[in-house]
Write a protein that binds this DNA or RNA. Structure first.
Lengths: 159, 159
DNA sequence: TGAAAAACCTAGTAAAATACTTGGTTTTTA
DNA sequence: TAAAAACCAAGTATTTTACTAGGTTTTTCA
């Protein structure tokens, strides 16, 4: 499991989304402005998260993304694994350096370690991080920052 | 905190070192051969770990590295932080995008998350990983693989 | 009906990090 | 004194990151 700023971007964006989806879909534009992340980069990250069924997209004006599942059923591990695909299948899969059993040994140890990390990150849910921040602060910023529909009309989601 | 294959290399090398230092310093050459990591790359990783007082070097023939501390006092976090310097001081340190308090909010959440990760990885010690592998298997491979001194003479360490 | 807002898509690309390579020097041992 | 090792500096190919550019498709609303 990799853990880089890419995953950090994704987690940050998802926290933003979780905190603001109550009034309807959240546009990537607004997340881009609020979090200072390039719009197109966000599009790429959300395309991956959509493929992993973490978010649902809604096209057209007033559209955006909403979480596909409950905030408490989405873990940090889900998010990071969605954007940082492993591709760690390389190394030592029937390779020549494994002859003495030594290489596979430490590789097993390492994978055990990452398994523990998975369990740990799977234990932290989006809802937890959201609640830890106290009350939703974003909506108070007004439409200029949040880019929310000023009439507060709730836009229907695709079923 | 970053967590990439670089840290994985370092942890793997340190497990190798921990399992083989009982007979004296372990050369990077032997770790290079056993773990399939470039010698010069190992040199760079160990230079960083030496700077963080995780290992002690011994020059000359029969030299190599030994752990500077007990296997149970060196955590996985120590190793990863030694080779993957953070340099995460960027982003949002009195920047312009913080005006509405929103950006700093998610940044705080993220740093809380990495704090938890630190605690977790600090809780896993090198000795634990070592013992989990059962009995030391490496020394049975003989000098061709391990490159150990065949006479078994224990080389003195610098004090 | 048509303009606009959004997702959605593809391709490229600059900067950074990773994972080396090369070619040394210094120290220590036998 | 030769060899083995740490130690050091500089360069480099590859990969990843983070982004730009330029679209299309879908949907809403005036």
């Amino acid at each position: 499991m990799r853990l880089t700023t890419k995953g950090r971007y994704a987690v940050t964006a998802m926290i933003d989304l979780a905190m603001n989806q109550s009034l309807g879909p959240v546009s990537l534009k607004s997340i881009s402005v609020n979090q200072g992340i390039s719009l197109s980069y966000l599009e790429q990250l959300f395309a991956k998260m959509k493929r992993k069924n973490l978010v649902v997209g809604a096209r057209g004006p007033g559209g955006g993304y909403v979480l596909a599942r409950d905030v408490d059923s989405i873990s940090i591990a889900d998010i990071i694994l969605a954007v940082d695909e492993p591709l760690d299948i390389t190394e030592c899969e029937g390779e020549e350096n494994c002859h003495d059993g030594k290489r596979c040994l430490t590789h097993d140890l390492w994978s055990e370690l990452t398994d523990q990390l998975h369990v740990f990150l799977r234990g932290i849910r989006l809802g937890e991080l959201m609640r830890r921040s106290g009350i939703d602060q974003a909506r108070n910023s007004g439409p200029a920052v949040r880019l929310a529909r000023s009439d507060g009309h709730r836009v229907g989601l695709p079923e």
